[in-house]
Simulated scan of single mutants.
Amino acid sequence: MKRLMLGMLMSLFAVGMIGCSSASEAGSSSGSKEDGPVKIRIGIGYATEEPLWLMSAAPELTKYNGDKYELEFQQFRANADRLNAYRAGQLEGGSLGQGALIMAADQGVDLKVVASIAKDTPNKGFNFPFMAKKGSGLESAKDLKGKTIGIPDFKSPTDMWARTALRNAGLDPDKDVKFSVLPTPAVEESIKSGKIDAGLVPQPFYAELEPKGELQTVFTSKDGVPVDEDFLSLFFNPKFISENEEAFQAFIEDYQATMKYYLENEKEARQKLLDKEFVLADQEIYLNMLDSNRSEDLSLNRESWEEVQQIMLEEKWIENKVDLDKLLDESYLK
């Protein structure tokens, strides 16, 4: 498996055009229990998925991995690639942002959101800051009129956070500011050189930059969307679930147990990921940085899905309301 690199955080948020073939048409190529453990192929990103990665990095934490199911991760930099692989029947499921999942459902992709991976919760855990040069006079979103904001991609959670924060400050994001799409590792230098005035700084970059005192926070993700977002969630193919219920239930139970271990032993869990080179980062920074809020039982916040969907409708990112009762399925959580 390719090494998981923390330096690529916001590539997880990229949203593009979705492929043409259907996962429900392609079905699952996983074997049955009679042939051995059921293979579960999961499309993952490059950051914020530590409890999920831990299931592979430390299989001793799981009860059924290798018995009832066999876990296989496939790494993708962009949502579009992950969704195309899923619709081609090359994946049973994957990690994806809340907005991207709603957009995928709006475009007819057959999937079920079954568990939370990470949340973006007001005043709890890490909230994503948009930062500017210290002394620039940019103290809040209202100061950004006529300025350029750096984001990883359009129609992404970061784009939504910025646009709603600007609207909340009385600005029109379509007229009063410019957006520049650039990779996360380039944000610091782009701010310092004046290419952009403010930009998103995720972990672990924030943990590295904040002590230097060269940049300051202008606003955060929660100034834009002040609700408990299921910012990163786990989705699966409904057909795979129905045809492999025992294996899927075993996987969910192991994921819950691994999440519990991660939350109770965060430094030890992160060290396991460093030791197995699932994460390549400065050890001191990675072990001590503030993490996103997470749900121990993997539960989803239905209210936040309603709120995020409403924002997406207002921004005209989706045309119709998605049936959230059909999209969200927590029936396998205990």
Rank of each mutant, 00 (worst) to 15 (best):
A250R: 08
V187F: 00
F236H: 06
I44F: 08
D159E: 12
K239T: 07
G27L: 06
V187E: 03
M8C: 12
S28N: 10
A269L: 09
L290T: 15
K267L: 00
E296K: 14
L215F: 07
E315Y: 12
A100W: 05
K147C: 05
L263S: 03
G7S: 11
K267I: 06
E330G: 04
V187C: 07
L83W: 10
R82E: 02
I318E: 01
S30N: 04
L287I: 07
L209W: 00
F76E: 07
W161G: 03
E72G: 05
I252D: 10
A88L: 14
S331L: 04
F235P: 10
Y332A: 12
V308Y: 11
M1F: 11
Q98Y: 08
S233C: 15
Y46H: 14
P157M: 10
F235M: 15
L52K: 03
W53E: 08
D159I: 13
S233N: 15
A78W: 11
P51W: 09
S30H: 04
A14M: 15
P211C: 01
A132C: 00
A132W: 00
A100I: 06
K142W: 06
E307M: 13
V38H: 06
V109W: 06
E214V: 00
G146F: 07
N320H: 04
N127T: 14
S32M: 15
N244P: 09
K63M: 12
A100P: 05
I252A: 02
A115R: 11
T217D: 05
S56K: 14
Y262Q: 02
D172E: 08
Q107I: 04
Y261C: 08
D172Q: 07
L52V: 03
I40G: 11
G170W: 09
F76V: 00
K212E: 07
D223G: 01
W161T: 03
